[in-house]
Amino acid sequence: MSIMDHNGGSVIAMVGKDCVAIASDLRLGNQALGISSNFQRIFPVTDRIYLGLPGLATDVATLHERLRFRLNMYTIKEEREIEPETFAHLVSSTLYEHRFGPYFIEPVMAGMSKTPSGGLKPFIAATDLIGCLNFAKDFVVAGTASSKLYGVAEGLWEPDLEPEDLFETISQTLMNAVDRDAFSGWGGIVHVITKDKVITRTLKARMD
């Protein structure tokens, strides 16, 4: 039994047409025993960046607090909000600082990044537990249901989905994958980030 599977939980992020989505389940467990069905492991970073932290729950809290510290100091000194690419490297370096005693977390992030012409383009990324970055163009997954998420996402995802279609795709992917995983589930949450707003919806799911 791996430490990564102790508390359970999964996160997925997908790219759409001028939008991105990030979703996770809401279960917090202690091995097979369910503790909470409202455990938030996705955190807003700025108005257009969201970060998901699947893995060991104590490190979800610790890493979130550490990143918030570094991010707030960045924002207040730079006098501007961080860009997703910069933030991805902040996450990566924070994790690599603990190369030989890592946080048991595999972060997933989604956001809209500024282009040189002043527009916004979708951005997703994921890292492993020591901060090796993966900038995917379609979708990224992590957590106890990651193997199932890969399979369903591979089948359902297509390029250039509009926000509502992307919501449906990511929700179906999440729900069907976590139903096949004993350590994920117990409800879900989806954030769809578009150019001008964020749509957040909670999903009802099987409670077993």
């Binding site: 102790h6 508390n7 917090l28 202690n30 025993l33 503790i35 909470s36 409202n38 455990f39 060991l56 729950a57 104590t58 809290a61 610790t62």
Partner: peptide, 22 residues
């Protein structure tokens, strides 16, 4: 709050630790 020795925290409507928790 439900807190375990790992430092896991969760705010919950009800909670229990130990064998009785099941």
């Amino acid at each position: 709050y439900w807190i375990d020795y790992l430092g896991t925290i969760s705010e919950v409507p009800f909670a229990a630790h130990g064998y009785g928790s099941y």
